[in-house]
């Protein structure tokens, strides 16, 4: 969605080709067929190849097929170099657990694990996320078989509207993978990159501490 929106923005700036403009509008009946062939200059994008020589560069433009390792599965998507990991998850791979709110790396709703570390998926390009182990909130547990953190969020009523919840669950999970016995201060610090506009922080912190206790078997 966002790319289409951006295409429209570009057209109003006057620095875009007529082709992209029509594609942005999305409804050009007579020209649709032509557009399809004209824009599908697909490139295979893999993690940096072994350099043939020191002067070698890999150039990715237009539509790019990215291969991503998400929740233990190899997935592919046809995106542009400018497409963020978040937009790829949500708009191309039907993984809508990570939420798009600020889209500027401030709110934390899009938090996913990349190589087991929490990152903002809105501030990482999909082409740049290849070759890494990506875990979204969907990869942590299911409604039938919740992870200890997810379960603790339910038990401690750690949400109000729920929109920030996936991000907090991922941040708390990352903390507990690193620190089995966190203090309240550790939890606050681990959640410092996530914002809850409803203000349910005390319950979130309680849930994280309870999940830690449960995971230690205490």
């Amino acid at each position: 969605m966002s790319e289409e929106k951006n295409d429209r923005l570009e057209s109003s700036n006057g620095d875009v080709s007529r082709r992209q403009f029509l594609k942005g509008l999305g409804g050009g009946i007579a020209v649709t067929g032509v557009l399809a062939t004209a824009t599908e200059t697909e490139t295979e994008a893999h993690p940096a190849p072994e350099p043939a020589s020191a002067s070698a560069v890999q150039r990715l433009r237009g539509k790019v097929r990215v291969r991503l390792n998400i929740n233990g599965q190899e997935m592919t998507a046809l995106v542009e170099p400018r497409t963020t990991l978040l937009n790829t998850l949500r708009d191309h791979l039907d993984l809508t657990g990570a939420k798009k709110v600020c889209d500027r790396g401030s709110c934390g709703c899009c938090t996913v694990l990349v190589n087991d570390k929490p990152v903002y998926s809105c501030m990482m390009l999909a082409v740049d996320a290849q070759g890494k182990k990506i875990t979204t909130v969907e990869g942590l547990g299911t409604p039938e078989k919740m992870s200890p953190v997810q379960e603790a969020f339910v038990e401690h009523d750690a949400l109000m509207c729920g929109f920030c919840t996936p991000g907090f669950v991922v941040s708390c999970t990352a903390l507990l993978q690193k620190n089995r016995n966190p203090s309240l201060e550790d939890v606050k610090k681990a959640c410092s990159g996530n914002v809850c506009r409803c203000g349910t922080y005390p319950h979130i912190f309680e849930a994280a501490l309870a999940a830690a206790k449960k995971m230690r078997g205490a």
Binding site: N6, P49, P51, A52, A54, V57, Q58, L60, R61, P81
Partner: peptide, 19 residues
């Protein structure tokens, strides 16, 4: 964000010359 070409250079020299 405006569309762009994404370049993966294989060496420092190619990164510098591309830039």
């Amino acid at each position: 964000m405006k569309s762009f070409e994404f370049v993966n250079p294989a060496s420092l020299r190619s990164a510098i010359s591309t830039l």
